[in-house]
Simulated scan of single mutants.
Amino acid sequence: MAERPAEGPRERLVDAAIRLLERDGPEGLNARELAGAIGASTMAVYTHFGGMAGVHEAVMRESFVRFGRRLRDVPRTDDPVTDLLALGLAYREYALARPQLYRFMFGITAPGAGPMIGHDLTTEGTPTELAEVNATFGQVVELVRRAMDAGRIRSGEPATIAGQVWSMIHGYVLLEIVGVFGDDGRGVTEILAPHAANLLVGLGDRREAVERSAMSLAAVPMASRAPRPATAVRGPRPGPRPNKK
């Protein structure tokens, strides 16, 4: 999906920062390279953002806007569990296509504290300085509430359960980005899918119902199992896979 075109110099700088980050990683994101990318002097960075710290914050915000937009593009069906699973696959697809940006937007490679620190997303209605994060997280909360209303998972605090779902997919994606699960996509079927099923069953759904919902994923557009891109951030590779019993 094409991102919206940049408008003024501030928006052009944010777009350029995201492109530099995705291409060169956080080390390549500096005032000189950034200003040069739009044909301006470094003074533009300080005029519009006060320095690189302001650029980092703007990149995080815009990243969550784009991330949330991508997740909203995933069609909803009559089955909230199918929708949760489809959202998880779209989440993974987005993150693996932009591994440097994904790590940056959660403060893993950005200087200073990440945007999530100090914000209580497990309490609905909690004010936050980063509304874009709440908007993205809110989509998971919405689907969890639908699953509760449909009797698929037991009643509880939707935002708290959504936090468990987000923790699962976020942890998996970070490990896949650094190469822990290899690069052939088998991690989805051998790690992520069973993990998601176990979590849903633990939350009260029936395993056979989860399996039916998973089978329905093939009919959901944009719920593709994207291959791991060549630009993914690589880290230490694990030892041999244990033998299956």
Score class of each variant (00 low, 15 high):
residue 1 M to T: 10
residue 2 A to I: 12
residue 3 E to F: 06
residue 4 R to D: 15
residue 5 P to S: 06
residue 11 E to D: 15
residue 14 V to H: 02
residue 15 D to Q: 14
residue 16 A to M: 13
residue 19 R to I: 04
residue 19 R to C: 02
residue 27 E to W: 04
residue 34 L to K: 05
residue 34 L to V: 01
residue 36 G to M: 09
residue 36 G to A: 02
residue 41 S to T: 14
residue 51 G to V: 01
residue 52 M to A: 02
residue 54 G to I: 00
residue 55 V to G: 01
residue 55 V to H: 08
residue 57 E to W: 08
residue 59 V to E: 11
residue 73 D to T: 08
residue 84 L to S: 08
residue 86 A to V: 11
residue 87 L to A: 08
residue 93 E to Y: 00
residue 94 Y to T: 00
residue 99 P to I: 01
residue 100 Q to R: 15
residue 101 L to K: 07
residue 101 L to D: 09
residue 102 Y to R: 04
residue 107 G to P: 11
residue 111 P to Q: 00
residue 111 P to C: 01
residue 119 H to S: 14
residue 123 T to M: 12
residue 124 E to H: 11
residue 124 E to T: 08
residue 129 E to W: 13
residue 129 E to T: 11
residue 136 T to Q: 14
residue 141 V to I: 15
residue 149 D to M: 03
residue 152 R to F: 08
residue 164 Q to E: 11
residue 171 G to Y: 05
residue 171 G to R: 07
residue 172 Y to M: 11
residue 173 V to D: 06
residue 173 V to I: 04
residue 174 L to E: 14
residue 180 V to T: 11
residue 182 G to Q: 05
residue 182 G to I: 00
residue 182 G to T: 01
residue 185 G to W: 11
residue 187 G to H: 10
residue 189 T to M: 03
residue 194 P to V: 06
residue 194 P to F: 04
residue 197 A to Q: 12
residue 201 V to Q: 04
residue 202 G to K: 06
residue 202 G to I: 01
residue 204 G to S: 02
residue 208 E to T: 14
residue 211 E to H: 08
residue 216 S to A: 15
residue 219 A to N: 02
residue 220 V to D: 05
residue 221 P to C: 08
residue 222 M to E: 09
residue 225 R to F: 13
residue 226 A to H: 10
residue 226 A to M: 12
residue 229 P to M: 13
residue 230 A to V: 07
residue 237 R to T: 07
residue 240 P to H: 05
residue 241 R to H: 11
